[in-house]
């Protein structure tokens, strides 16, 4: 259990990788950056960590997280926003659109007249989180570094390309 808290998570900077994608309108390649997560902490780990951090049992923490998720779901999907102090707010967003035969997806589309808009135009409901100003500013000020020339970057590129690490 002690190992959970001893793990170093404070990296102080965010890693990114650069990739190129064809621009649909011009056909030329454009360069884009994508943040690379250092590690993925699964729900078992987070539950264990949270229980230890708040000094409650893991079972209690699991029940409390379930109740928290129920509460967020209830409020957000009934049209309210949930604002957590010093963190941000959970809100819903909707997408009203039309069926695109070419991409086989619903794409956002508006109407010329307000009177033509119907609730049935809405094709998707999404739950979003928006950080508070303080955390957004903190994230914006975080140092960035390109991982492309590092071993970590190579591993990330391989995993994106579907290349499995070979067993020596």
């Amino acid at each position: 259990m002690a190992k959970v808290l001893n793990l170093k998570t404070n990296t102080g900077k965010l890693g990114y990788t650069i990739y190129e994608r064809e621009d649909e309108s011009t056909g030329s390649l454009k360069s884009l950056a994508r943040l690379v997560p250092y590690s993925k902490f699964d729900e078992l780990y987070i539950n264990k960590w949270a229980a230890q951090f708040m000094k409650v049992s893991e079972a209690q923490m699991r029940m409390a997280f379930n109740a928290l998720a129920d509460a967020v779901e209830y409020f957000v999907l009934n049209g309210h926003s949930v604002t957590l102090k010093n963190l941000g707010n959970f809100t819903f967003s909707t997408k009203s659109g039309i069926w695109n035969e070419r991409t086989q997806k619903w794409t956002s589309a508006g109407k010329e007249n307000a009177a033509d808009c119907q609730a049935s135009d809405i094709k998707g409901t999404y739950i979003r989180i928006r950080l508070c100003t303080e955390l957004r500013e903190k994230l914006g000020a975080t140092q960035l570094y390109c991982v492309d020339d590092t071993t970590f970057g190579e591993q990330e590129a391989n995993s994106q390309a579907g290349v499995r690490p070979t067993n020596p």
Binding site: F75, N78, G79, H80, S81, V82, T83, L84, K85, N89, T91, F92, S93, T94, S96, S108, A109, G110, K111, E112, N113, A114, D116, C117, Q118, A119, D121, I122, T125
Partner: peptide, 14 residues
């Protein structure tokens, strides 16, 4: 253009 969209009702705090 005009879009149909969801309307937020209340803000729930901690």
């Amino acid at each position: 253009k005009y879009f149909a969209t969801g309307v937020h009702s209340h803000r729930i705090d901690d």
